[in-house]
């Protein structure tokens, strides 16, 4: 059952953190652990379990919902769009994240601190505020278009938000810190003399990068890809705000089915599938995150 194993797990964590000697019977920290496990069950497992249960029970019990969802053209379109936007976002995030992390590793200690602050600062700003900021910057009457037109680089304002471009931009911006940090952590562990050494052994700067630095930074890249992929599948606010209504991704679609069209069969089935895909990704790739924090082997 879930409860006892969760308690055991929790106790393991608590013990490791605080180094409390095991006590016979139920100790205070057991109580705390049980409490937090119960909260976890009440707030996460129970509702999630209910969502999964509903997907098999309404309108009639069985796997009919799953069968019909695979034949539902709208769901196909929405899932297709979600996958397309997500992969575009993940790809761009990794590229930009990699470049930024590389700059961080190369920077001096003062510059690095400033740059890290720049990376981390957006994490404390609400995604709502950031989305509005993008709209203010990039809408046809926004700052960027005004400047480009004033300088004569554009005749007509260009649509930079309220389309898929805006969605990808907002999502990339949101996820960059989650990509930069694991990549940076991995890069910082790479022996900085190795690329030099590769060159002394005859490699051009490009070869030294491709054959030595890139493969050594790959675990960080993989961890970043894992994190951003999982996050991009569930994006809700950013596509809704920056997509101009035309970029409907899975999370928003589910929300509409729940609140507007009352198709809870579709909503719960799609939620369950999303949960399943995310869970499978976590189960398969969570070791990547440990890699990024593990000590180097000697």
């Amino acid at each position: 059952m879930i409860l006892p194993s969760a308690i055991a797990l929790g106790r393991e964590f608590a013990g490791a953190r605080f180094q409390i000697a095991p006590v016979r019977g139920l100790s205070v920290q057991d109580g705390l652990v049980i409490g937090s496990v119960l909260v976890l069950i009440a707030c996460y497992l129970l509702p999630l379990g209910a969502v999964v249960a509903l997907s098999f029970l309404v309108p009639v019990p069985g796997i009919g919902n799953y069968w019909s969802i695979f034949q539902n053209a709208t769901v196909h379109a929405v899932v297709g769009k979600t996958l397309w936007i997500s992969s575009l976002t993940v790809g761009l995030t990794l590229l930009l994240g990699y470049i930024t992390a590389y700059a961080l590793v190369q920077a001096g200690p003062v510059a690095r601190k400033l740059m890290l602050a720049g990376v981390l600062l957006p994490l404390w700003i609400s995604v709502l505020v950031r989305n509005y900021a993008w709209i203010a910057l990039l809408s046809p009457g926004g700052i960027v278009n005004s400047i480009l037109i004033r300088w004569g680089w554009l005749d007509q304002p260009v649509s930079l938000v309220r389309n898929s471009f805006g969605v990808v931009l907002g999502m990339v911006h949101y996820m960059l810190p989650y990509a930069i940090l694991p990549i940076y952590a991995q890069m910082a562990r790479i022996d900085s003399t190795l690329p030099h050494l590769a060159r002394s052994l005859g490699a051009s700067p490009r070869q030294a990068f491709i054959r030595v630095f890139l493969p050594l930074s790959r675990p960080g890249l993989a961890a970043a890809a894992f994190l951003t992929s999982i996050m991009s599948l569930g994006f809700y606010l950013t596509p809704a705000m920056l997509g101009g209504g035309k970029t409907v991704m899975v999370a928003e679609f589910i929300s509409i089915q729940v609140t507007e069209t009352l198709r809870w069969d579709i909503a719960t089935t799609l939620s369950t599938l999303l949960l399943l895909v995310t869970g499978a990704l976590v189960w398969r790739f969570s070791h990547l995150l440990e890699l990024a924090t593990a000590k180097p082997k000697t």
Binding site: P47, P59, V60, P61, V127, G234, Y236
Partner: peptide, 27 residues
């Protein structure tokens, strides 16, 4: 993760909902 919103009110009613949706016959 502030991008994800979660409707807690939605969860209270699942049992009722199942019974209603299935006309109380099958479940």
């Amino acid at each position: 993760m502030s991008d994800f919103t979660y409707d807690t009110g939605y969860m209270q009613h699942l049992e009722q909902s199942v019974r209603r949706e299935t006309q109380g016959k099958t479940v």
